[in-house]
Simulated assay, not measured.
Amino acid sequence: MSDPILPDIILHHYATSPFSEKLRLALGYKQLAWKSVIIPNIAPKPDLLELTGGYRRTPVLQIGADIYCDTALIFDVLEHLQPMPSLYPEPSKGMARTLAQWADSTLFWAAMAHNLGPKGAAHLFAGAPPEALKAFGDDRKAMSTGMLRLRPADALPAYRSYLRRLSDMLDDGPYLLGELPCVADFSAYHPLWFTRTRVPPMAGVLDATPAVLDWMDRMAAIGHCTMEKIRSADAIETAAQAQPVPVVDAPFQDDHGIPLGSRVTIAAESFGTEPTEGELVAATRMHYTLRRTGERVGTVHVHFPRIGYVLKQVETT
C-alpha cells in the first residue's frame, strides 16, 4: 500500500521568530516538507490578515483554505497529519503538554526579557536605522498592552533558575522527558535558541548549564526538513482555489451559551489580542473554528485552541 498523499503545508513565518523555529523543528522531526511564506515581523501584515481576519501573531499554518493559529494547536494538526514520530509520546503525554505550556509562557517571557535587553537589542538591530528599532518596540508594546513585562534585571535570575531546572531534567535522559523529544522539548528550546543564535552577546547565561547546551545541539540537529519558498500572493490564491475541510460530526462543547452559527470574535488572552470575527462553526473540547470570508481569499476556516483564547458573541443592534 502506498503512503497517503499529504496536503501542502504552508508556513507563514519569519527567520528570527522563536515560535516559528519551534514549528520549523517540529516539521523537521515529522519529516514533513513545507512551503515558506515570509511575513513582516511587525504590522502591517495585510496578506496574513487577509487569511486570519485579525490574528497577527507568528507563525500561522495554512493547509488549503484552513488557517491554524497558535503553535499549541498547530502541533496537534501536525500530529494528525503524521502520527509518528509522536510529539506526545506515552506515558508522559499530560506532563509534556503541561511543561510545554509553562515553557511557551513563563520560560519564554523570562528568556525574551533577557534577550531583548539593551545589549541584545543593539546586536539584533545592528546596522539598522534607529527608526527600525523604534518601530519594533512600538509594535511589541501595542501587542502587549496590559501585560506585566519583566525588566531584564528581574528576568535574568529567573532565566538562570529555569535553565538549572531544565538541566536537572536532563540528568536521566537525552531529552526533557526521556529518550525521545516531545512537545515540551520544542517549546523549551525556541526561546533558548533565540538567546544562542540571534543575540550571542546574551548567550553567556547558558554556559552554567552544559547539559542544556548539549541538549540544544541535539535539538538543532533535527533540522527543518525540505522547504520551498513561495509568495504570500500564492498562499492567498491557494486558499481562494480551495474549500475549507467540512466540519463533520465535531462534538459541540458549549461553555458559553453561544450556539453554533453565531457571529463571534476570538482573541488571545494576552499579547496580540487583535480579534478575529466570523461565524462559529465548531467548538470542541480542544479548539474553536470560525468561518469567515475575505475579499481576496474567499471562504476560509480559521482555527484556534481553546486554552489561551477568549470567545465572545458579537452584539447585534
Rank of each mutant, 00 (worst) to 15 (best):
T106Y: 14
A111S: 05
P83G: 15
E315P: 00
D154R: 06
A132Q: 07
A122D: 04
L213F: 09
Y14R: 05
P46E: 10
K141F: 12
T98Q: 07
F271V: 13
K119C: 01
P210M: 02
S92E: 09
L61C: 08
V248M: 02
T226C: 08
F271L: 01
A184K: 00
K22Y: 05
W193I: 10
L107K: 04
T52N: 01
A250P: 08
S2G: 14
T265N: 08
Y162A: 15
R140P: 07
M216C: 02
D255W: 07
C225G: 15
Y68K: 14
E277C: 03
F108Y: 05
D3Q: 06
A240F: 13
L156F: 15
A65D: 00
M147K: 01
P18K: 13
R165F: 08
V264W: 09
I42Y: 08
L99D: 02
M95E: 13
P7S: 05
E79S: 10
L48G: 07
Y309N: 07
F194T: 10
A250R: 10
D104F: 01
L48H: 12
E295T: 07
A122E: 02
R151S: 14
P200D: 10
A203R: 14
P210I: 02
C182K: 03
T71W: 03
F136T: 01
F75L: 13
I63V: 09
D104H: 00
Y162M: 02
G272A: 10
I38L: 15
V60L: 15
K312W: 00
S105V: 10
R24S: 06
T317V: 11
S36E: 12
M112I: 12
V37M: 01
L206Q: 02
T317D: 08
T195W: 00
G54K: 13
A153L: 15
I10Q: 09
A155V: 14
E274S: 11
L170C: 03
K119N: 02
L61D: 02
I38C: 06
S36K: 13
P83C: 15
P174V: 02
R140N: 11
M227Y: 06
T197V: 10
